[in-house]
Amino acid sequence: MSNKIRWGVLGGGGDSLIGVLHRVAASMFDAYQLTGAVFNPDHETSKAFARQIGIPTDRIYSDHHEMIRLEMQLPEDERIQVVSVLTPNFLHFPMAKQLLENGFSVICEKPMTMTYAEALELEAIHQKSGAVFALTHTYTGYPMVRQMKQMIAQGVIGEIQKVDVQYYQGWINPIIHDPQLRKTTWRLDPEKSGISCCMGDIGVHGYQMLEFVTGLEVKSILADLNHLYEDNQMDIDGTVLLRFDGAAKGVLRASQIATAEENNFSVAVYGKSGSLKWEQENPNYLYLLTEDKPLQTLKPGHSYNDKMSLDGTKLPPGHPEGIFDAMGNIYKGVAKAVRNQPYEAGEFPGMRDGVRGMHFIEEAVASHANGNVWTDL
């Protein structure tokens, strides 16, 4: 009998980019077997996609309720163990909730829920379930992001003074200026996306990243968001000032109307004795700056890197790794947790990241709505 983890998927069918990303990531370390799915709300479309990618259709279900009900009727050693939730935002909470209540481990796309209240409820359910929960803040899987985290923890750049996170995209720019087109994307529909578009979609990545690499927690924020048009309720651009404990401060800049930008995500952390910079579009380079030495460039796969960075490196030095590899590292960490194998804190984002992310989104919107005021987290 295969010792692979039996894996299910909700969403991610057809030409979904996110579906391909998850399927490739799950296949990387030979840890998962795609066992059952609901790829599409239409059952026949789901089965057709299953045949297209070469998996049996006997466990392609009509919806997640049927998946859970029928899987629970199977012997435990045949039942799906982990389910990935790859649907639009408004379905994350009800699906993850029902899965956790029935003992399934969950890998969930972000944002975790539609509201902070839902996030707290899901956290309580997770604590009772004994299951593994992972949130796919994919960028934490890059080896040089993990190296950055370890170097900061080791005091390489000294006490943190300033954090600067930027996430600039331009994808919504051709849509937002057309009154009809801006009604066609679910990300601008608060009933499907939640109260925020830009901060909920990409700003929360920056927020999670800065807490991940620094080990600090944001204590208060001041947000200035932009909607461009009165008939658009959702932010598509914004800047958030950040305060941590002590003297450290930061800024988070996110935009979906940064014309012609693709996926310009970067993080810089400035300490008393040095700084570290990383850019998603050039993910294999981590830059270390100090006042007494020339710029140093660290790359993945070398022995000078930390254990967690090396564990997430699949190829020899000089062979670029990218977003599929980063997601694969998250799936690898989840596999260790499901199998009760030792794993390092930080190998996959979890429930805490989701709860804090939803709190950040809601308070950023509130800070802007209340006149750009400081708001405690």
Rank of each mutant, 00 (worst) to 15 (best):
W7K: 07
R146P: 06
K192W: 04
E262C: 08
V334T: 04
R356E: 06
V145C: 08
G203N: 04
A248N: 10
T184N: 08
D178L: 11
E78P: 06
K299W: 07
V338T: 07
D231A: 14
P143R: 05
L120E: 15
K128N: 11
L135V: 13
V213M: 01
S27I: 04
T185I: 10
D231F: 15
D63Q: 07
L289V: 12
I175E: 05
A366C: 07
K336Q: 08
V20L: 10
D237L: 06
Y167R: 05
A153K: 14
S220T: 09
Q296L: 13
I107T: 10
G170S: 03
P179D: 07
W171Y: 10
E230R: 11
F244S: 07
L100F: 08
V334H: 02
E291A: 15
E121N: 13
I53D: 07
H302K: 12
W171L: 05
V24L: 03
L17T: 15
I80N: 02
G200P: 01
H22A: 01
D42R: 05
L289Y: 14
I80T: 04
D42L: 06
V24N: 00
Y229G: 04
I221F: 02
V106H: 03
L120R: 15
G13M: 01
N305E: 08
G36Y: 01
S266C: 12
L86W: 01
G194R: 00
V338D: 02
L298M: 10
N40W: 04
I55E: 04
I330V: 11
A26C: 14
E321G: 03
L276C: 07
N173L: 12
P320E: 08
G8K: 03
P320A: 11
G346K: 03
M327F: 15
R356K: 14
Y116V: 09
P179F: 10
L210I: 11
A96K: 12
N372H: 13
E217F: 11
A119P: 00
D245R: 13
I202D: 00
F93R: 05
R69S: 15
G274S: 05
D292A: 12
L315K: 14
I160C: 01
K314E: 12
Y207H: 08
E78W: 09
I202Q: 00
W186M: 07
V373L: 13
R253T: 05
E101C: 02
D30F: 08
F104D: 02
D224C: 05
D30W: 10
G215Q: 15
Q280H: 14
E123S: 08
K249H: 11
R187K: 15
V218C: 07
G318Y: 09
S367F: 00
P88G: 10
L70D: 09
E191D: 15
K314D: 15
I152L: 10
S27H: 09
N340L: 14
Y207P: 06
G103F: 09
V218H: 00
Q147P: 06
M234K: 06
I80F: 02
T239V: 13
S266L: 10
A248Y: 05
N263T: 09
H43W: 13
Q280R: 12
Y116A: 08
E118H: 08
Q233N: 14
Q127W: 12
D77N: 13
M148P: 04
G322P: 07
V355P: 00
Q33M: 11
L99K: 01
D42E: 10
L252Y: 03
G203P: 00
A37D: 05
E191K: 13
N264M: 15
M1F: 14
R51L: 13
E159V: 06
Y167T: 03
Q208T: 07
